[in-house]
Simulated scan of single mutants.
Amino acid sequence: MNPTACLLIIGNEVLSGRTRDANLQFLATRLGERGMPLREVRVIPDVPDTIIDTVNEVRQKFDHVFTTGGIGPTHDDITSECIARAFGVPWEVHEETRALMAADYASRTPPVQLNAARLRMATLPRGAVPIRNPATTAPGFSMGNVHVMAGVPRIMQAMFDALAPSLPRGEPVLSRAVHALGVYEGQIAAGLEAIQQRFAEIDIGSYPFYRADAPGGGGVALVAKGTEAAVLDAAAAAITEMLAGMGVAPIAGEPTTP
């Protein structure tokens, strides 16, 4: 079976709506390409007990856990020390990381001081493996099956790219999509359920979309996802046949909103 993954998005600013999360789609897509489907996502606050309890729960449930957010230099960046507490190990300065950051800051014009706040980013759970990346000398890190990354999308993506070669692979998650205009979910629910029962080994979903020039103002995207191309092709053919029985021809390509 493919390895499974969970994402924890950590940050009060996401829960408040002040910051829009931009990491979920990137991680879900990249993990799916590696055959490590993202099975659960949680958004949790910067509360130590919540972070610790959630990490300990999901690291037992999933093969790999990814976290984003909370590893900067400010007082509310508490993810790293919470991971240390979750694993029951000291949270201490990682000397190799401290030296790399000190050299980086000293080389800048003008030089930047590695003060106590910045030193927090070089403080890791004992035994953690830093995730080095070209975006910053302040790393993410892996602790067991938990991979801790920044919340800033550009930095998070650099960290994931650095981490990805060490992650296991499964069968890539493939998809087939059939788009139809002027069709409503209520019309196809029974037929689509029957097709899902025929192809129980894949996931089939329906997703309404809006288009001003479509009959009734929109349509549905019918998407099949799985790891076997032949099964997906057969399911897409069955969906197309169902629509044909309703006198509907699928449209080519992705639907766009004029």
Rank of each mutant, 00 (worst) to 15 (best):
P3C: 12
G11H: 09
N12G: 11
N12L: 01
G17M: 03
G17N: 03
R18D: 01
R18M: 01
T19Q: 05
L24N: 01
L24I: 06
A28L: 04
R34C: 09
D46N: 12
V47T: 15
V47S: 12
P48F: 12
T50R: 12
N56M: 14
N56D: 14
E57D: 12
R59H: 03
Q60K: 02
K61M: 10
F62T: 13
D63P: 08
V65I: 10
F66D: 14
F66E: 09
G69P: 13
P73A: 05
T74M: 02
D77K: 13
I78C: 04
S80C: 04
C82G: 03
C82P: 06
R85A: 14
A86F: 06
F87W: 10
W91Y: 14
V93I: 15
T97L: 02
A99R: 15
A99D: 15
L100Y: 02
A103R: 13
D104L: 13
T109Q: 04
P110N: 09
V112R: 14
L119W: 00
R120V: 08
M121E: 05
M121C: 13
A122F: 02
T123L: 04
P125F: 00
R126G: 07
V129C: 00
V129Y: 00
R132L: 12
P134F: 03
T136W: 08
T136V: 06
A138R: 14
P139N: 11
P139C: 06
G140T: 11
G140S: 05
M143Q: 05
G144N: 07
H147N: 14
A150P: 12
A150F: 11
P153V: 12
A158T: 06
A162P: 09
L163P: 11
P165A: 09
P168E: 10
P168K: 05
E171I: 00
V173P: 11
S175Q: 13
R176V: 03
A177P: 00
A177L: 04
A180Q: 07
G182N: 06
Y184R: 15
A190G: 09
E193Y: 02
A194N: 06
A200P: 04
A200F: 08
E201N: 11
I204D: 03
P208K: 03
D213W: 00
P215W: 00
G219M: 05
A221Y: 00
L222Q: 03
G226M: 06
T227Q: 08
V231G: 05
L232E: 11
L232T: 05
T240S: 13
T240L: 07
M242K: 04
L243A: 10
A244G: 15
G247C: 13
P250S: 06
A252E: 15
A252V: 15
E254N: 05
